[in-house]
Design a protein around this nucleic acid. Structure first.
Lengths: 375, 375
DNA sequence: GGATGCCCTGCCAGCGCTGTCAAAAAAGCA
DNA sequence: TGCTTTTTTGACAGCGCTGGCAGGGCATCC
């Protein structure tokens, strides 16, 4: 269906058309109807150069004369030429695809990760393949290995909890695909990582509570298998001890990051006849919601009777009343940085000699809302 | 790096090895180390057949002798062979990729759509490319056209609001890529669509309110540019008129699907000195949350003083108290069905002659929780 | 027995592009 | 000017796979 020109006679009889250097294109080539796909061949013919030269221009390679470059670019524009990504991948070393593996039930988290990664991908005209995986599947390693054999991804982003699973790391490493982990807990240094200082965040939040006059502070732990759980608790105890406060063991409750476990914790905290803290630090917002629900049911006012703070800035934290004081993780920026590490590597391959930073720590934000008040 | 065998002498001197038909493979081929990628060539050599035959087996094509098929499959397993998706796409007519375009700020909705689509993709070993787009960008059409020229997708899923935009439909159609729209409002019949009966859902919810004794029912409209807005209102008025109730115009408030617009509506409903309805139907949950927040602030009890119901079953609807009575859309199933239409088409191309259903309507679910009570 | 047709298999030519290398053109230099 | 060096360009061979076709084997039919 593609238009065919006469045999390639020399197109560089420039004298005639030199008046307007910008229209030095080969005549007699029919321009495509909108929607038609043109190939590098069409562009080469129109511009009167070889396809290799077109390839050079499209890839911004050096050693092309400025006027040739312009000529090719015009031809490409005229034909609405877009290089075929599949063909580029097959012929070259890059696939222009990065993948993101996750097994995380939190849609807003996943969404933020995707958006951040995509934002960076677009800057390098890369595309994002999403690959949710079942972390508990016995076939996990095989699935990932198979997938990476089928599509040669230029890089992979791993989020918790997959980023802490040995089989996952092994599969990705065996396939020889570069990867970056987001907020991993285990094996720092095994790969580039991007994260936020969770311990520091809870440390500062606890200081905030103390500054508001609280000394009787409860804590709800997150899921024990999740790395953040420990880091968050560390920051909490550090702030307490620095303020000379001895934490009460019975005011540290085990939670699992779920709303339901928050309800359990709340019931436990607010049981009849027991002394209760003036503030509760919940390791994430969902559990805070649960605690607040229990308080509400029992007529305990927030923040007058008890202050409650969370972690994550979940979307619900401004839906319920009072709005929850919490820590915002820059999830989107973290994912952006993760993609950046991958793409910078793919693009310059450490050309400058300076090793790229392999452990990026992004700043958090302490968001003070209405669920925390003075004693 | 790939192992090389001696020149292809005939491997089918079967007599010797026929004792164990399952090991009729060519000897002398080194098996790959784990992580090595093997190509169709390696498999062909090991199995002692041509690559074309391997290709036939891998694609489940007919006209391959059963024993040949087994032989090839064994060789493929031994080598951990996975066909290269890029090469398949380039050589063949399919890319094994479908794309999903969206511009929707609701993470849980997007997440559900992705999960449903991926679930179906995996059944046909397809992959999902996610392509968020800015619906308000002046380059929208160009972006989509460029993207589709760069990657030949086998199909595209369009969600609201993109699925109702002329430029989007035009770009996709011009590229000749099959597409399915999810819950579109405009141009039914222009493409296959998958949706839920939104009018019917509000109709039944309204009947539910009426059955609980409510006759004074307010309504909060959604964003006027969103198709669902009108359908939802239709169902509401239909149920009212069938019950002989005349809706009061001042009890129909304009909202925009946002939490904030719910707060506005709530303030308007609960303004001092004005008669107020005994129930409010909010066109989505977020607005219902806003209304409930206002009610709570003003000491209006739910559901004792007023019943409130929403639409969508947003994740927050069980986080706040009381839990919200709402409509659950089977978003994941809808997306699954959308992908199914695309893949079924890609795979059998209407081989059976029966045209595939081009307008699938999936059932909703009315979820009764605590925010609605009897009058 | 020969003709006919079907089943199974392999050969070949690409898909649209990039990597390699060598040739041609331009620039630098004595 | 004639030479070397550098820049610019193109020919060519694939990347790993599929589509089209042809050929050989075998059963069927007259």
């Amino acid at each position: 269906m593609r238009s065919r020109t006469d045999p390639d006679t020399d197109a560089r009889g420039t004298l005639l058309v030199d008046i307007k250097a910008s229209s030095e294109l080969k005549p007699g080539v029919n321009l495509p109807a909108s929607g038609t796909v043109s190939t590098i061949n069409d562009v080469a013919r129109l511009a009167g150069v070889s396809i290799k030269t077109v390839s050079r221009v499209m890839n911004n390679e050096p050693n092309v004369r400025a006027e040739t470059r312009v000529k090719v670019q015009e031809a490409a524009n005229l034909l609405h030429y877009r290089p075929n990504l599949l063909a580029r991948s097959l012929a070259g070393a890059r696939s222009f695809l990065i993948g993101i593996f996750y097994d995380n039930p939190n849609p807003s988290y996943i969404n933020a990760v995707q958006n951040g990664a995509i934002r960076r991908c677009r800057e390098s005209s890369y595309h994002l393949l999403i690959e949710p995986q079942d972390a508990h599947s016995p076939d996990l390693e095989r699935n990932i290995a198979g997938l990476l054999a089928t599509i040669r991804l230029d890089g992979v982003i791993l989020t918790p909890p997959l980023c802490d699973m040995a089989v996952v790391l092994h599969a990705v490493e065996a396939a020889g695909v570069p990867y970056v982990r987001i907020s991993p807990f285990l094996n720092p240094g095994r790969s580039p990582i991007v994260r936020m200082d969770e311990a520091r965040a809870t440390y500062e939040m606890t200081q905030h509570l103390i500054a508001m006059g609280h000394r009787d502070i409860g804590f709800v732990l997150g899921h024990p298998e999740h790395g953040g759980t420990h880091l968050r608790y560390q920051g909490f105890t550090k702030a307490l001890s620095e303020a000379g406060i001895t934490p009460r063991p019975d005011w540290v409750k085990q939670g699992f990051f779920s709303y339901e476990s928050g309800i359990e914790a709340g019931k436990s905290f607010f049981a009849e006849g027991k002394p209760r803290p003036t503030a509760i630090f919940s390791s994430n917002d969902y559990m805070a919601f649960g605690i607040m629900g229990v308080a509400q049911q029992m007529g305990i006012r927030i923040p007058e009777d008890i202050s409650i703070c969370g972690f994550d800035d979940a979307p619900g934290s401004i839906l319920i009343w009072p709005h929850v004081t919490t820590i915002r993780q820059p999830v989107e920026d973290i994912a952006y940085a993760a993609a950046d590490i991958l793409l910078a590597k793919a693009e310059v391959e450490d050309a400058d000699g300076t090793k790229r930073d392999t452990d990026r720590m992004l700043p958090f934000e302490l968001i003070k809302r209405n669920s925390v008040g003075p004693v």
